[in-house]
Amino acid sequence: MEETQSPVQAAVKPGLTIGLISLALTYIIYFVNSSLLISGWFGFAALIIFFVLIFYFGRQYRTEIGGFIDFGSAFKFSFVAILISGIVSTLGQILLYQVVDPSLPQVLAEQTMQNTLATMESFGASADAMSPEQLDEMRTGIEDGFTLTGQLKGFGIAIIIYAIVALIVAAILKKRDKSLDY
């Protein structure tokens, strides 16, 4: 009789796969046009791909274990897969921003600042209404997000988001065997 993997063991391979796909997309976009890394459509497309993959692998695992999975097992599988994916992606981004192209964070921070000011103006707020200190504080905050410390802090915050996403995925993936009801 074949022994099934625990949800944690089963989540390792999908987590690595999703993380590597995310990383490949990031590096492809970087080589095509690095300014696209901060565009909204890239983030949205990456999010859609991420959700499709996590649901695909979750359903695949559910099928492998007999077609039924309880909420706790679905949560463990989803959270571990998402966490591993996040670790791989974060390590790849650290490599990109700190080793491959150390000037990229400055470029992206400046573009993010310009996009933020343009968005404020589209809502009727003028950048001229902000003091130079406020603009410098905003710029520093954006730049800090691209530093090694900023990326690690971002990953720490992302773990909370990963748990929430895993709860949602688990609620959708769970399926109980109704034949066991009395």
Rank of each mutant, 00 (worst) to 15 (best):
V32H: 11
T147A: 07
P7Q: 15
E2H: 12
L180D: 09
G40S: 11
L47F: 10
D128V: 02
I159L: 13
I28R: 13
G145S: 05
A24E: 12
G86T: 04
Q93G: 11
M130E: 01
V80D: 01
F51T: 08
Y97D: 06
Y97Q: 07
F31P: 07
E133M: 08
I161N: 09
K153P: 00
Y56W: 12
G15R: 04
I159W: 01
K178H: 13
A24V: 12
M138Y: 10
D128P: 01
S78P: 00
L173E: 07
F55K: 02
F55M: 14
N33G: 04
S85Q: 02
G40T: 12
G92E: 06
A158C: 01
F146R: 02
F31T: 08
F31M: 11
T149K: 15
F50Y: 10
G154V: 07
L91Y: 11
P7Y: 12
F57M: 12
E64W: 03
A171D: 09
Q60A: 14
N115C: 04
L95I: 15
Y182H: 08
I94K: 01
K175E: 05
L20Y: 07
I29L: 08
D70L: 00
M130L: 11
I82P: 00
G66T: 03
Q151Y: 02
A129F: 06
A10K: 15
K76L: 05
S131D: 00
A46E: 07
S35A: 15
D70F: 05
